[in-house]
Design a protein around this nucleic acid. Structure first.
Lengths: 209, 209
DNA sequence: TATTTAACTACCCGAACGGGTAGTGGCAGG
DNA sequence: CCTGCCACTACCCGTTCGGGTAGTTAAATA
């Protein structure tokens, strides 16, 4: 018999975590080597139990599943991570993919599907719920389609103008003065820019170029 | 008689502003075409009075003299700006120079020196108090000396490591987790990095590269 | 051994930021 | 005329940042 797949679990809901734990350990070929209710200090936790696959809840206290995924992938790129969520939120999917997650499934998936997802991820596959799959395709069309002219394409003139000032290191107030509009207006545009480019801060914005 | 030098005044202290106004208008060859107690909406104000030289207080409400200078230089690079301050603060000098100011003098300078500074700035000179001059030289040695290996030289290993994560767009919390240290420690290092590189935010930091 | 320095941890506070919601006026197309 | 869209303004709220201050520990130096 070949090696068992070592699985670690991150899920803040006690009932769910316990359920998954039973489910995994009850499956031949799978062992749950760790179950945690948050992803704080996740690198340390991972170092302790050395999983092959991580089943990661997306909504957790301390740091969320996406951030946690990014961290793990930085230190242990060989570990497969399956992100699990209740939502089919477009942004969450986008971020999950970009955080390096291998799969993205819904919590409402039947237990059998979850076990399949773990195995599939371990074998190098990309377990994805069909409804998720279609959304990722849509996102890929939007973004990696162009990919380099992306950054400031798909922005209108005003947004591009403000983006320019943002990346010059100016604050809302300075941008507002520079354009002779209110600070609120600047915030309005920046919000839209963030949303279009799928970032959430100046730092992320500037890192993406 | 040649054209008079048109001077605009930004100074929040009423007494001083009035004094300067009298001083300038009392000098042959100089006209005070505007005196304001703050630099809010400065582009509009400047557009209204079209000065050749601006005498700018560094400490003002709404937006400070350095920010104001940056704005003016963006829109009217031909206007000469003399920054005036009570402090000989190293950082302020550094920022003033980088904001594009033409001169930097102390408020305690005698009136005659101030008038000279205005004329000198108008003629393309760089009026600077001697004590300021020596500090600028020191700063230049530190920074523009290297200029491109600057950014991460003069930082130690730990600081360079954290800088790397900062420019990747990570938050304090994520950096902390990534390095397995406390958020406070990360803040500590970032503070030092900012201080060394003379910036005050992620945005400025990333703009400088 | 005493002193100093570097790296780290911690707490505090005000300002800036991110994100949500909502309302205005103008202009285009139905 | 109504509807939708767009640029803009505004307010709210929770979080993050930036910066000041201070205390700990360990190593280096005197």
């Amino acid at each position: 018999m070949e090696k068992e797949i070592r699985v670690a679990l991150f899920e803040d809901n006690y009932m769910l975590r316990d359920g998954y734990y039973q489910l995994i350990n009850g499956s031949p070929g799978l062992t749950c080597v760790g179950a945690f209710d948050n992803a704080g200090d996740i690198i340390f936790k991972i170092s302790g139990c050395r999983p092959d696959v991580i089943l990661m809840d997306i909504d957790m206290p301390v740091i969320n599943g996406i951030q946690a995924t990014r961290l793990v992938k930085e230190h242990f790129p060989e570990i497969s991570i399956v992100i699990q969520t209740v939502f089919e939120d477009e942004d969450k999917i986008f971020e999950s993919i970009h955080s390096g997650a291998n799969g993205y499934i819904l919590k409402k998936s039947p237990p059998l599907k979850i076990l399949e997802a773990i195995s599939e991820a371990y074998q190098g596959g990309a377990p994805i719920t069909p409804s998720i799959a279609s959304k990722t395709l849509k996102l890929f069309r939007q973004t990696s389609a162009n990919h380099q002219l992306k950054s400031s394409a798909q922005l209108n003139d005003r947004q591009r103008e403000i983006l320019q000032l943002i990346v010059s290191g100016l604050s809302y107030k300075l941008i507002a003065d520079s354009l002779s509009v209110s600070v609120e207006t600047v915030k309005y545009h920046v919000k839209n820019i963030y949303s279009i480019l799928h970032v959430h801060s100046r730092a992320e914005l500037m890192a993406r170029r």
